[in-house]
Design a protein around this nucleic acid. Structure first.
Length: 825
RNA sequence: GCGAAAGUGGCGGAACUGGUAGACGCACUAGACUUAGGAUCUAGCGAGCUUUGCUUGUGGGGGUUCGACUCCCCCCUUUCGCACCA
């Protein structure tokens, strides 16, 4: 045996990457007899090159994949590309390249980068969402959803980003700006396609309880996003008109305290209410300025509550009171019914509005801790209490009154229980080129006609050659001119493309058999592999991507394609990679390029450091000197193996009883380390503590070699082999190379994760802390099997204890088994 | 404003269900080897002090306990999410 003296990471990494390319050890087969494990990292958008966030994400995923393989599981670990999207079009405009060739070039480049990291993907399952072979099935699912009534088209006011020239879903508007380009978003009225995600609102909400493997934070965010509220929908007749205003309230118990009515400026009844009245001009002017204000309002502060009287009144069905109808700037048309019954005594917004316009305040819920006086109240009281001034409901507890009032309204036919969600249907129409075409034909006679299934895919035109037309589809006459599949008359194709979040909502399902040609999902493969056991990605997708994916999984289940309710059993949201205290960004000039790092230190070192520097869920502060530390550690292990290679020559079984003390200690530490590393990974993927444990073992091996004249060869061997296996998921090239160089006939891919020997790991002696009044005063070395009484006696007999105690007589002695003795005196 | 999470050496971070605070790594200091070293090895490394040792110390203040980074109450700071949701 002759190991190369120096750790030549370049040679080693090239060698193993090439070998993995040839032998495909990570190719996965469906195998019902084995336990499966599906680990997935969020697939990247092919933006050009990978960044440190990817490095971290994929390093974490790769450790898990390799660890589970060592444990004997059949691991699915695929990779692909979220390949549709705006940057491709922007690049096309900027550099004059076709979005398709820009995207595919980037994919090629990034695939090489990922391969240079030594990630154990089954590359035969690679997919790109911009490939017609992928989006063909998405189009099919679209048609099935349409058939099932889960898709509709309507004209609405949408969020329009002028910069991106497209519509955005509400979730994609962040602080009034586009999530992608950060430009302000404007309302615009147009037709668009919608997925009825609200049909699944209840299930999406209820099933959150099943997601015990998700961070609580993400579950809460989704719960709030869905925003379920239960209450009463109630009609208020307009005085002197046939129409009535329907309101929604979660506080039906306060309905006797209504002193006015507030409508959103966009409420459809407003124009009718004011038509011909003396308030018409004033109201219209108010509406106009409010709409303008809404558009440019900064989000930091709520504007003052403002409104204007319409001149009309409506009637409270409970009291018969006439209350004035206002148009108010704080009422949202998008939520509830766009009309709010105003109870200033018990709602802060109504209270402020009432004070501004000197409207009456009427207390109807009396909390038990304080007396409410409408004239002196400084804020609304939202606490529960007992109903007052509420007719026959007086004296009833407010919680119970809610039910009784709803029942009363229902009995008399002017109201009913109602549930409202914050969640809205998902608008998926985009007016851009680089996306999956929506498979619909518009016919003047037949209306909306689905493209027949056998004509799928509707291929995005112009992708055939690099000079192809990549104008938005509504500008491509050759594309949209067609004939109606029903009547054969000239017709027009739908020119909207789908939101790219649609592709990423089901790619993890397609991975189970990405080459299946008979449908979107191969049933047996899906049944075997789903759900994803471990999903890993940034918390920035806590709502959008994860909610859409959950929705799609349920839809595909109801369409009969899959049998699971939830896509991701366990979710790990990794922290950001930051440098010098802030997120890496070009403008800050603190970007670290993974390529340079890998060239300089090797992929294994970069992987090791990104795992060591922080636990996965926390932000990782990138420290260039820390990387050197990781490199140093690998070099030290390499040197140790080179120095100690003789121990691999002979078969040396270890008999614990015959070992010298140093060898025995090292052997014990080896088994303790196995336990510790396994626990760190199993508990919460805290690789940082796993690595530090391995470092401690290596440190002890070094120290033992220095101390002892002759360390037992079998122990050295077992220690080094343990180190190599434990490190393998993190630094695979490095470990494979040393494993091979030390004469092992099979690669580590075929190895098994070690199991620690409890007997060996057990300490023979313990260090017991002796405290006097809670302060550490002495330490005792005692045999592990010592009794509590014996321990107490030894502690009291200890010389240092005695000198500290002096004349005092201990009042109490507390003995904590195998840990400490505290003497209270 | 509401909600959640987090505050531990010069830095990244450890500490299991309340039981030796600071594992491991980085940086730093001293020494060894060396023509040299950003290589390697050895030792030290929270602060203070009257330095075989003592005192103090986990954002601040209080409390529970024999004992608190850990549990309870109040406050401060940071980060994230939501933001007129009726």
């Amino acid at each position: 045996m002759d190991i190369q003296e120096k750790y030549d990471f370049q040679r080693i990494e090239n060698k193993w990457q090439q070998r993995w390319e040839e032998t495909k050890p990570y190719k996965t087969h469906h195998n019902d007899t084995r336990d499966k494990y599906y680990v997935l990292e969020m697939f990247p958008y092919p933006s050009g090159r990978i960044h440190m966030g990817h490095v971290r994400n994929y390093s974490i995923g790769d450790v898990i994949a390799r660890y589970k393989r060592l444990q004997g599981m059949n691991v699915l670990h695929p990779m692909g590309w979220d390949a549709f999207g705006l940057p491709a079009e922007n690049a096309a405009m900027k550099h004059g390249v076709h979005p398709a060739s820009w995207t595919y070039d980037n994919i090629d480049y990034m695939r090489n980068q990922l391969k240079a990291m030594g990630l154990s993907y089954d590359w035969d399952r690679e997919l790109a969402t911009c490939n017609p072979k992928y989006y063909k099935w998405e189009q099919l699912v679209f048609l099935k959803m349409l058939e099932k009534g889960l898709i509709y088209r309507k004209e609405t006011t949408v969020n329009w980003c002028d910069d991106c020239q497209t519509v955005l879903a509400r979730e994609q508007v962040i602080d009034g700006a586009c999530w992608r380009c950060d430009q302000p978003v404007f309302p615009k009225t147009m037709h668009g396609w919608f997925f009825k995600i609200t049909d699944y609102a209840d299930e999406l909400l209820d099933d959150l309880d099943k997601l015990t493997g998700w961070p609580e934070k993400v579950v809460t965010m989704q719960r709030n996003w869905i925003g379920k509220s239960t209450g009463l929908a109630c009609d208020f007749q307009i005085d002197g008109m046939d129409d009535s205003i329907t309101i929604f309230t979660t506080r039906p118990d306060t309905i006797h305290g209504v002193t006015f009515m507030s409508l959103a400026v966009e409420h459809p009844l407003v124009s009718k209410l004011i038509a011909g009245g003396k308030h018409e001009q004033e109201v219209n002017a108010f509406i106009e300025t409010t709409i303008l204000e809404k558009q440019r309002s900064s989000v930091d502060h709520e504007p003052e509550k403002k409104g204007v009287f319409t001149g009309q009144y409506c009637i409270n069905p409970f009291t018969g009171d006439k209350v004035p109808i206002y148009v108010a700037n704080f009422v949202l048309m998008e939520y509830g019914t766009g009309a709010v019954m105003a109870v200033p005594a018990h709602d802060q917004r109504d209270f402020e509005f009432a004070r501004n316009y000197s409207l009456p305040i009427r207390v109807v819920v009396q909390p038990d801790n304080k007396e409410l006086d409408p004239d002196t109240m400084e804020e609304a009281s939202t606490e529960p209490g007992v109903l007052v001034s509420s007719g026959k409901f007086d004296g009833i507890d407010s919680e119970r009154a809610k039910q009784q009032i709803i029942a009363h309204a229902q009995e008399h036919g002017f109201g009913k229980p109602h549930i409202t969600y914050r969640l809205r249907d998902w608008g998926i129409s985009r007016q851009r080129y680089w996306g999956a075409p929506i498979p619909i034909i518009h016919c003047e006679d037949c209306g909306i006609v689905p493209v027949p299934e056998n004509e799928l895919p509707v291929v995005l035109p112009g992708t055939g050659d690099t000079n192809g037309n990549h104008a938005p589809l509504h500008q491509q006459e050759d594309f949209y001119t067609t004939t109606c599949p029903k009547c054969g008359k000239p017709a027009k194709r739908e020119t909207d493309t789908m939101d790219t979040f649609v592709e990423s909502s089901w790619y993890f399902i397609r991975y189970t058999d990405p080459r299946f040609t008979e449908g979107p999902v191969e049933p047996q493969a899906a049944k075997y592999w789903l759900s994803v056991d471990q999903y890993i990605g940034g918390v920035e997708h806590a709502i959008l991507h994860l909610l859409y994916s959950r929705f799609f999984t349920k839809v595909l289940r109801d369409l009969g394609y899959v049998s699971v309710d939830e896509p991701f059993t366990n979710l790990l949201t990794q922290g950001m990679v930051i440098k010098d205290g802030s997120k890496m960004s070009k403008s800050k000039g603190n970007v670290v390029d993974p390529n340079e790092l890998i060239d300089q230190f090797g992929a294994d070192t970069v992987r090791l450091f990104s795992l060591f520097a922080a636990p996965p869920e926390r932000d990782l502060d990138w420290n260039p000197q820390g990387v050197e530390g990781a490199s140093r550690f690998l070099n030290r292990v390499y040197r140790l193996v080179v120095q100690q290679q003789q121990c691999f020559n002979e078969e040396n079984s270890v008999k614990v009883d015959e070992l010298d003390e140093t060898s025995k200690q090292l052997f014990r530490k080896t088994h303790q380390t196995i336990a510790r590393v396994t626990d760190s990974i199993e508990a919460n993927f805290h690789f940082n503590t796993a690595i530090s444990g391995i470092m401690e073992l290596v440190n002890l091996l070094n120290a033992s070699l220095n101390d002892a004249k002759k360390l037992h060869n079998g122990v050295i061997r077992e220690t080094l082999e343990t180190v190599l296996i434990l490190l393998f998921p993190m630094v695979p090239h490095f470990c494979e190379e040393l494993w091979e160089q030390t004469g092992h006939p099979h690669t580590l891919d075929h190895a098994r994760w070690p199991v620690y020997n409890k007997e060996v790991a057990k300490e023979e002696e313990l260090t017991i802390v002796v405290q006097i009044n809670g302060k550490v005063r002495a330490k005792l070395q005692v045999p592990a099997e010592i009794s509590d009484a014996e321990l107490e006696q030894q502690a009291l007999a200890n010389e240092r204890t005695r000198s500290f105690l002096g004349e005092r007589i201990p009042k109490k002695v507390i003995v904590v088994k195998k840990k400490l003795v505290n003497i209270v005196g």
